[in-house]
């Protein structure tokens, strides 16, 4: 389950005058009072569009996210790892489906949203456009990518939109094993042969920066997050979540005996969640290559084309199955009517 701080509220269309300031004000009051908004409730068009985009992107990320890990299901090195990885990737399909269902309550059909993904119109998390090159990547993805995702997702359980919040509660509950599964793989590699430990370090080197990018652009550059915050879709800023992630990551890395590939990583004293030598503060990362992030989002990551091509192929090759099921259902309905 993965979200990314790339969803911007749609502020293009101003609310119709007829909708009136009254409805909008009443809506905001309900949100401020922590009331949940439900599917049939009145909501500003921009709220609906923002959520449709965010939830569907979130769903697409789950579905595309199956591919890099699916790449290793058939090569998992033990039967226990094979079963857990398959269960995890399968969960991602499930989470994609919960989210499509939540998004559909806002009015667009899953098929329309999925077609947008296949046509390249819709975005998904940048992280899945990186390749999985060794078994250690299964550890790194579970530990880092799912770890980052959890930071993003837990606040979404309190999102103002009821169907999204409920889907996220289910997702978070199911997903609690994903990060542990990944970290366990890393522990096994780091306690293994020198070759295995090198494999783990290499995976960390490749996934660290893309994972920091997963939280989205720095707060200063994210022009629309104010509106999402007011609507209580977003509860923490990109930078806040990134900070939380990093503070948790550093001691976990130390435990593994691995090194984060960040020459500028440093500890700053102050009020903070992280501790070092008994002092409180925060870990600070070096500068993130935002140009890479934008390029990957724009379709120029190492695997963008392959990921979409794989889903397009599956969709195209599965068309006859969907047609057959529809044709059979139509025949059965007709027979029932005739009987």
């Amino acid at each position: 389950m993965y979200t990314q701080g790339l969803s911007n509220p749609d502020t293009a269309a101003p609310a119709k005058a007829a909708e009136g300031a009254g409805l909008a004000a009443r809506f905001q009051e309900r949100v401020d009072a922590e009331e949940r908004i439900e599917a049939n409730d009145w909501m500003p068009d921009a709220y609906r569009r923002t959520l449709t985009r965010q939830i569907s992107q979130h769903a697409h990320s789950e579905i595309i996210g199956m591919l890099p890990e699916g790449n290793w299901v058939t090569r998992a090195p033990t039967l226990r790892r094979k079963a857990t990885l398959l269960a995890k990737v399968q969960d991602e399909a499930g989470h994609g489906l919960y989210l499509y269902a939540a998004a559909e309550t806002l009015g667009r059909s899953r098929e329309e949203m999925f077609d947008d993904l296949l046509s390249g119109k819709a975005k998904y998390s940048s992280i899945f456009n990186y390749p999985t090159l060794t078994w250690a990547d299964m550890g790194a993805i579970g530990w880092l990518v799912d770890g980052a995702a959890i930071m993003n997702q837990i606040p979404l359980c309190r999102c103002s939109y009821g169907p999204y919040a409920r889907a996220m509660i289910r997702v978070c509950k199911e997903e609690s094993f994903h990060q542990r599964q990944g970290y366990e793989i890393m522990v096994a590699l780091c306690r293994g042969t020198p070759e295995q430990k090198a494999m783990a370090q290499d995976a960390l080197n490749r996934w660290y920066w893309p994972c920091l990018m997963m939280f989205g652009p720095p707060d200063g550059d994210s022009t629309h997050s104010d509106q999402s915050t007011r609507w209580k879709i977003k509860r923490f800023s990109n930078d806040e979540l990134r900070q939380k992630f990093l503070d948790a990551l550093v001691p976990q890395t130390e435990f593994l005996g691995l090194t984060l590939p960040d020459a500028d990583l440093r500890f700053e004293l102050g009020e903070g969640d992280a501790t070092k030598d008994g002092a409180r503060g925060h870990w600070r990362h070096g500068s993130i290559n935002w140009d890479e992030f934008r390029q990957v989002l724009a379709g120029n990551g190492p695997c963008n084309r392959e990921r979409i091509a794989a889903r397009r192929r599956a969709h195209k090759e599965g068309a006859w199955v969907r047609e057959a099921a529809a044709a059979y259902a139509a025949k059965q309905a007709k027979q029932k009517l005739a009987a």
């Binding site: 329309e112 296949l118 397009r312 529809a326």
Partner: peptide, 12 residues
Amino acid sequence: MSDVKTPNTPLW
């Protein structure tokens, strides 16, 4: 691909 519309399957 982009111009092909996938038909809707019933929702339950």
